[in-house]
Amino acid sequence: MSTVCEHSPLTFSSSPTAIASGYRPYSNRQLLTVATGCTRTTSDVFTHDLNAFPAPLVLPGDDIEGDPTYPSQSFREWLDLGVRNHVTSGRNVLYVAAAPDIDSKVEHMQDWQCSDTEPNTPTVPGVESIVAYLRAFYHVMEVELLQQR
């Protein structure tokens, strides 16, 4: 069953926190370099709309807010850090832990899973839905739900 997304149009502008912290969007040249890995690529050979690159969602306390001038990192640099958990035949299980139950000590957290338009209506998918999604996305791996929360 398909449902219609009721979200307002997507925005590609920076969040208020990003603007307040001094974050500045990347130029088209920088986006081309990061997307292609080549500093000499011209926009006419790149098939994607550069205006479709979303600005990062900068929230209070994020690293970008703390130091918006920190040098950027390309996907290749991130991948080459060497701290990745490589998938092997012996390491091919993705374990999913369900969120803990909310008891009376932290009852105010109940509101975190409700939309602003429909208070008291949970909008968080069940953990089984999340596991099913991850199984489809990480199809080369096993995805297991941990029984203990």
Rank of each mutant, 00 (worst) to 15 (best):
R29P: 03
N28W: 09
T41E: 03
G90S: 15
A52T: 14
T88N: 02
G22E: 01
W78D: 09
S27A: 01
T33V: 02
Q148S: 10
C5S: 15
I19V: 09
E65P: 00
N51C: 12
T33F: 06
P119G: 02
S104L: 09
F75Q: 06
V140I: 07
S115V: 09
M109D: 11
Q148C: 05
H86L: 04
D67S: 11
M109H: 12
P71G: 12
A132M: 05
A132R: 06
M1I: 09
V45G: 01
S72C: 14
G66N: 09
G90Q: 14
E6A: 13
I19L: 08
R149Y: 11
A98V: 01
I130A: 11
R84K: 05
A97Q: 10
I102E: 08
N120H: 04
D101Y: 15
E142K: 07
S72T: 08
R29L: 05
Y95N: 14
H108P: 06
P125G: 07
S115Y: 07
T11G: 09
R24C: 01
V140C: 04
Q113F: 15
L10A: 12
G82A: 05
T47E: 13
V58N: 00
Y70R: 10
E65C: 03
A136N: 13
H86V: 07
V93S: 10
E128D: 14
M1W: 15
Y133Q: 15
A97V: 13
A35G: 03
S89M: 07
H7L: 08
L31Y: 06
T3Q: 11
V93C: 15
E144R: 08
V96T: 03
T123G: 05
A20F: 00
I130D: 03
A18R: 02
L146P: 00
A99W: 02
F12M: 12
Q110C: 13
V93M: 15
G90V: 15
T88K: 01
A52C: 11
S74K: 13
R76T: 15
A35C: 12
T69F: 03
Y26L: 11
P68K: 00
L134E: 04
S104R: 08
